[in-house]
Computed example of a mutant assay.
Amino acid sequence: MFTNLLKEVGRGKRGARDLSYDEALLAADSILEMKATPAQIGAFFVAERIKMESVEEIEAFVAVCRKHAYRAPIQEGLDCAGPYDGRKKTFFATFPAAFLLASAGLPVTLHGMPSLPPKWGITLHDLLREAGIDPGGLSRGQITKAAEGTGVLYVPAEEWCPPLKALRSIRVELDMRTVLNTAEKLIDYSYSPYLTFGVYHNTVFERMAKLANNLKYRKALIVQGAEGSEDLFIERPTRTYFVEEGESRLHIVDPDAYGLETALPDVVWTPAVQLRVSEAVLQGRGHLAFVNQVLLNAAVRLQLAGKVESVEEGLYTCKALLDDGAAWELYRKWQNVMRSEGVLSLPN
């Protein structure tokens, strides 16, 4: 059966066709359960990459990933779905923003894994390791305890969805983007009603908006952000798609409209620098560009989830939480709970 499906997507640019949702379910099941051979799986990924995955095909892969993942309604909040292949040239604003949002009463789910192709950038896993936490060594109970105490849930995706770990070697050998690069970000480990999802090209806005609707998120913000992430730019406007109740519309978020547009300093990013800048922002003493970027992203996400009426109100709320130390205190609490298991040698 898998061979027949492979032939349908692998007939070349002109002859290939999109699979139906049911056919894509069969293909995804064969791949995630490793019923297909590594050669067949690799061929399918390449064929889909050439053809370009349809919404129904991605949705099917999301459904099968979810079936094989540990998912629990730990908290009702916002899922931040950024690229698992990481960052090379930009600040991980979503990391400190998560603690700012949680301190404002909006629980946040983050998730990731060790770096992947095609970017091979710095990941959230790397930031946690710099903070003295071994994300792969944490039990579900420990992770859940940290989330229940702080509102920030970090999911090591390969541990909570084991087929992703089983497929890593094939993805590394291919060294290219596959359908999993999208599907793995939408597993939604905590049944979040709100989603912010990063894309690299604006040509996929409509497809991803349709996918977010099909997956029944209450509201979603599709962001053409920094390095394909869910992070809004601070030095220029960002193109986004706002999705709600089957409707979607283009929305430009311009930092200059809020007096926040700021030139970015030249930074050579390493995991240590990412963590240092994140912690400086949470302490209210970071570079203005990165403080403003975190404030803008947090304010827009608070508005998305209905916690504030406007971005301006969100900015006021978030600035106060940075100034009074609430976000930093919450981060330190989360860090201490996460360090009590899966501990690495702490940085100096």
Rank of each mutant, 00 (worst) to 15 (best):
P271W: 12
P271N: 05
A272E: 15
A272H: 15
A272P: 11
A272G: 12
V273F: 13
V273N: 05
V273K: 14
V273L: 06
V273W: 14
V273E: 09
Q274P: 05
Q274V: 02
Q274T: 02
Q274D: 05
L275K: 09
L275W: 14
R276K: 06
R276T: 00
R276L: 02
R276I: 00
R276V: 00
V277A: 01
V277H: 07
V277P: 02
V277F: 08
S278P: 12
S278N: 14
S278G: 12
S278H: 13
E279P: 05
E279L: 10
E279H: 09
A280F: 15
A280H: 12
A280N: 07
A280T: 06
A280L: 11
A280R: 13
A280E: 14
A280S: 09
L282F: 08
L282W: 13
L282D: 01
L282M: 03
Q283F: 08
Q283M: 11
Q283I: 00
Q283S: 08
G284D: 09
G284P: 10
G284V: 03
G284A: 05
G284C: 04
G284R: 10
R285E: 04
R285A: 01
G286Q: 10
G286R: 11
G286E: 09
H287M: 01
H287Y: 07
H287E: 00
L288E: 15
A289L: 04
F290R: 04
V291S: 08
V291E: 12
V291C: 05
V291L: 06
N292K: 12
N292V: 01
N292H: 10
N292I: 03
Q293F: 13
Q293V: 07
Q293D: 09
Q293C: 10
V294H: 09
V294F: 14
V294P: 09
L295Q: 00
L295Y: 04
L296H: 13
L296N: 10
L296V: 08
L296E: 08
N297E: 07
N297S: 06
N297Q: 13
A298T: 10
A298N: 10
A298R: 11
A299M: 03
V300I: 01
V300H: 04
V300P: 00
V300F: 07
V300K: 03
R301E: 09
R301D: 10
R301T: 04
R301L: 08
R301C: 02
L302V: 03
L302D: 06
L302P: 05
Q303F: 13
Q303T: 08
L304Q: 13
L304N: 07
A305K: 11
A305H: 12
A305L: 09
A305G: 06
A305S: 11
A305W: 13
G306L: 13
K307D: 06
K307C: 09
V308Y: 13
V308I: 07
V308R: 14
V308E: 11
E309F: 15
E309Q: 15
S310Q: 08
S310V: 02
V311L: 01
V311F: 03
E312F: 10
E312L: 09
E313K: 13
E313P: 03
E313T: 02
